[in-house]
Simulated assay, not measured.
Amino acid sequence: MKKFLFFLFLLFVIYLIGINTVPQYIETQRNPVKIAPPYSVSSEAKALYDRLDFIADLHCDALLWGRNLNKRGDRGHVDFPRMREAHVALEMFTIVSKSPAGQNMQSNSEDAFDNITPLTIAKGESPWNWFSLMNRTLSQSNALADFVENEGEKAIFIKSKTDLEKLISIRKTDKQVIGAMLGIEGGHALEASLENLDKVFEAGVRMIGPTHFFDNEFGGSAHGENSEGLTDFGKSAVRKMNELGIFIDLAHSSPAIIDDVLEISTKPVIVSHTGVRAVLDSQRNLSDTQIQKIAANGGIIGIAFFDMAVGEPELPNIIASIQHVRDLVGIEFVALGSDYDGSVAVPFDITGLPLIVEGLMEAGFSEDEIRAVMGENVKNFFLKNLN
């Protein structure tokens, strides 16, 4: 009996060690920064950056890794202290609930082994989350709510236009106050239930991408196997998202889904993190025709920061992607969509955003255009379309 109890105790100790080391190791491997901070820019770029009233980013997966976002981290790309250091007013935190083994840009099976299951266990999450995508989703939603609450009056969970207006007003006198919004990457998280849309809306979700890296109940992924458009369930979900006030995120969707959503949706769409095919010809990136249709819909396009979306070297290609959207449809339709903490290597973490301002200045963008790209477009989009 003593040997058995000792064995159980040993297993428990190993489990505790795993909780404290395995997720950190995995994140360090999956979310590297190519150039470590601090970052330096010209005095002119720094002065312009410091004049920006509202900086926003449309995509960050930091909730996945189990880090305490209230504390400044030494790994990953985003947390609340680094948001403040970078003067970022608003971040869209997105929930990843499933990721296929061997994930790639070309073709992934929905039946592939799920990478998130062992990570969920290793983080010490409740067994209720181990095999339920919906429970994982609600758990990450609750985590963001807790992080915001821990900030007291220095953070706002943005769920409505009123919340956003409050953030804008408070930041006129206190730039330490930050805003956090919540999205979902991949409609598989809903487990084919329209009723779950009500649950995630109640939890604060205001953006959902129909698909991520594999086909699901909504339809085809840009990286899946069937390239199909919206299923009947997907069409019903899009209509209900419109009714509730949940934005549809077309990043990772098949071209057929993009067309179907733009035909069905009565509300403007978001492409939270993408590249453009004119800069990098990839199946995960937008064609000129798609960009024009999204602009005609009144949507907004977030340009990602990693090589598989923009190519290498990243920074000049980020600038080129922004410039292409501006020249094609207008400056008001383009924004930042980093994909920070999204299992990608990035050239700089969130404190390196002044490098983008410097790049835009060197490319001849005016100060008003830079303000638009860095956050004014996002602010105006949500002021106009958030319920």
Rank of each mutant, 00 (worst) to 15 (best):
N68A: 09
D111H: 15
G187W: 00
P37R: 13
V96W: 10
D163K: 05
D53E: 14
P38R: 04
S42R: 14
L197K: 10
I300C: 03
R326V: 03
T162C: 08
R30Q: 15
E217Y: 11
S338L: 08
Q29N: 12
L194D: 11
S169C: 11
P23S: 13
V261E: 01
A45C: 04
F80I: 15
S132V: 04
L244Q: 06
H223L: 14
L230Q: 09
D339H: 05
A295R: 00
I270N: 04
N297Y: 13
I318P: 00
V346T: 10
S40M: 12
Y15E: 13
E314L: 05
I264A: 01
G18A: 10
N226A: 13
I264Y: 01
I270K: 01
K123M: 11
E185T: 02
Q106E: 15
H59K: 02
F201T: 00
T351M: 06
P38L: 04
L52P: 07
E362G: 05
V88I: 14
A309M: 12
E151M: 15
T162V: 13
S132P: 02
E202T: 12
K235V: 07
N104T: 11
D232T: 06
N285V: 09
G124S: 08
L194S: 12
Y15G: 05
K175M: 12
K123Y: 02
L360V: 07
S287V: 11
Q176V: 08
V310K: 07
L230Y: 08
T289H: 12
N150Q: 15
L5P: 03
F201G: 00
F54C: 11
I356H: 05
K71S: 14
E369Q: 12
H324Q: 06
E376K: 10
A304E: 07
I35Y: 13
K159I: 05
L11P: 09
A47W: 05
A192R: 10
Q106Y: 14
M374L: 12
A320L: 09
S99N: 11
E44C: 10
T162N: 14
V78P: 03
S338K: 05
G229V: 10
A56K: 06
E332F: 03
K46L: 15
E367W: 02
R84K: 14
V329A: 07
L194P: 10
